[in-house]
Amino acid sequence: MKYLIKCLGVAACCLLIGNVAQAQIKIGYLNTSELIALMPETKAADSQFNAFAQKLQQTLQPMQQDLQTKFAEYQEQQATMADAVKESKEKELQDLNERIDQFQLKSQQDMQKKREELMGPILEKVQTAIKAVAASSKFTYILDSNAILHGPEGDNVLPLVKKELGIN
């Protein structure tokens, strides 16, 4: 009876050790920023984004120049202005400055929205390629190398994902 219990115990240990050995984790890593920068779609998105930002800047510049001109005129004539005129000019300058601030805030929001609109499909394509490489190469985890401070050695999957995306 004791012999049977020992045999069952040894068999159970062998099964557990075998299962642990089969459940090894395979870790890979890549630098997603580098990958995204290498993609031709990113260059096209960047040029579209820069053109969009330049249009906004071209709209903002005349507004800022107008404010600077009116402020310089105000400073020159301030000493000789009547109080009512001075108050009116200060209110005009304040209103113009507020409109510029609102335009800048709205521009920043529009630029963020445009960046997300342009980069969304690129990020989705990268994610799909990473998943395909993980499945085909049987990686348990693929991590971004920018977030790894220290960890077990893994495989750099950047070349595999570049190949999946057709990037040389």
Rank of each mutant, 00 (worst) to 15 (best):
A82N: 14
V126Q: 04
Q108M: 06
K6A: 14
R99H: 01
V10C: 06
F49W: 07
G18I: 10
N50Y: 09
E153Q: 15
L118E: 11
P121R: 11
C7S: 12
D110K: 08
A129W: 03
Q64V: 13
Q64H: 04
K138Y: 08
N168H: 06
Q68S: 03
A132C: 13
I5P: 00
E153T: 15
M39S: 07
I142K: 04
T128E: 14
L123R: 08
K70S: 07
Q102P: 00
C14W: 04
K89W: 01
V10S: 02
A44L: 13
Q64A: 12
D66T: 10
I122C: 08
Q57I: 10
H150N: 09
R99M: 00
A72H: 00
N146I: 11
K106L: 11
L4D: 07
E153L: 15
E116R: 01
L118M: 13
E87L: 04
Q102I: 02
L165D: 06
L4H: 11
T128A: 15
V133T: 00
K125F: 14
K106Y: 08
D66N: 08
K138H: 14
V133G: 01
A147N: 11
V133S: 02
G166V: 15
A129K: 02
I100N: 00
L105Q: 09
Y141R: 08
F52W: 05
L56D: 07
N31M: 05
